[in-house]
């Protein structure tokens, strides 16, 4: 039974990582930028959620009204910068790593390196949980999973069913030719980067709801999130969710069957195997 609990809880946790991977994967797949600043936006959104909720007494979920548009703007501005200076894929990785380091430092200066936790009267979710039979799920994890599923499904629908989404797909497959048919990549790119930023705001909000904040959290996320992006297939949104659930469940199971310190070993072995045998991800899209 403990194995089942570990696997399901792990999968739910994994969905939060999938939510973080979503924006990264979209920008990488469609805009050819590896935007580590995505983690900076998640961190910043987490602290802003904390700050807004504690100073106004609002529910942390309500702060999204402020953080999502703000991060949309930040994401869009960073993309404009990449466009303006014609930054290549590899250089975007280096530049955004710099942006991430700067953000971590700024966050440390403002909020200190100490743990920050929302007071429980503002964050009612922290103590709640849902029992299903003998399984028990903390409310913050369920919230994270709910947001992740909603955003991934929304992203998949926009990409597959709307005209702008198809234009983006075309752009991801052949940017020169897409542009020759009138697809203005700048506008689409900025909108996509903005949407990725807004998704970072949602992911960021979930951290103070679920636990404590420290400025060096991004360095704990990067490895797992990249693993999920690669396993899911770069630019494949539903694949990202499946990969998140898989990685989460695997980590959870390994942690109870062996020890928690073995899970990264198993997860990254999985990534290496995937890169050898399924380089386009575990859940390849048709055609391609």
């Amino acid at each position: 039974m403990i194995e089942l609990q570990a696997a399901v809880s792990g999968a739910l946790n994994g969905s939060l990582y999938a939510l973080m991977a979503l924006g990264l994967s979209l920008a990488w797949g469609f805009l050819k930028v590896i935007n580590l600043a995505h983690f900076a936006m998640i961190l910043l959104a987490g602290y802003l959620t904390f700050e807004l909720a504690t100073s106004t007494g609002l529910s942390p979920i309500a702060t999204i009204v402020v953080t999502a548009p703000l991060m949309f703007l930040v994401g869009a501005l960073i993309q404009l910068g990449y466009e303006r200076f014609d930054v290549s894929e590899l250089n975007s990785l280096l530049i955004s790593y710099g942006l991430l380091i700067i953000t971590v430092q700024v966050v440390t200066n403002i909020w200190t390196a100490d743990f920050q936790r929302l007071p429980s009267e503002i964050n009612p979710f922290s103590a709640e949980s849902l029992a299903v039979g003998s399984l028990r799920f903390p409310m913050p994890t369920l919230l994270a999973a709910g947001f992740a599923v909603v955003l991934v499904v929304a992203a998949a629908l926009v990409l597959g069913r709307t005209y702008a989404g198809r234009a983006l797909q075309a752009f991801g497959q052949d940017r020169e030719i897409a542009s020759a048919f009138g697809i203005d990549h700048r506008l689409l790119g900025v909108l996509l980067a903005g949407a990725a930023g807004a998704s970072a705001a949602v992911a960021g909000m979930l951290f103070p709801i679920g636990g404590t904040l420290t400025p060096d959290l991004p360095f704990e996320w990067i490895g797992l999130v990249f693993a999920i992006v690669i396993l899911g297939g770069i630019g494949n949104v539903t694949g990202t969710l499946y990969a998140g659930l898989l990685v989460g469940a695997t980590s959870g199971l390994v942690a109870v069957i062996w020890t928690p310190s073995t899970s990264p070993f198993v997860v990254f072995s999985l990534v290496v195997l995937a890169l050898v045998f399924r380089p386009k991800g575990l859940f390849p899209q048709k055609g391609g």
Binding site: R166, Q173, A180, G182, H185, G288
Partner: peptide
């Protein structure tokens, strides 16, 4: 490029360069 097509020029590129993972209909649509 993205303004040239509104000016009335279109290209059938070398090697076809279709959008391979999209349907025939979507390719025409785009």
């Amino acid at each position: 490029g993205h303004r040239m097509c509104r000016a009335g020029v279109a290209i059938v590129p070398e090697g076809r360069r279709l959008f391979p993972s999209m349907s025939v209909e979507d390719n025409l649509d785009l």
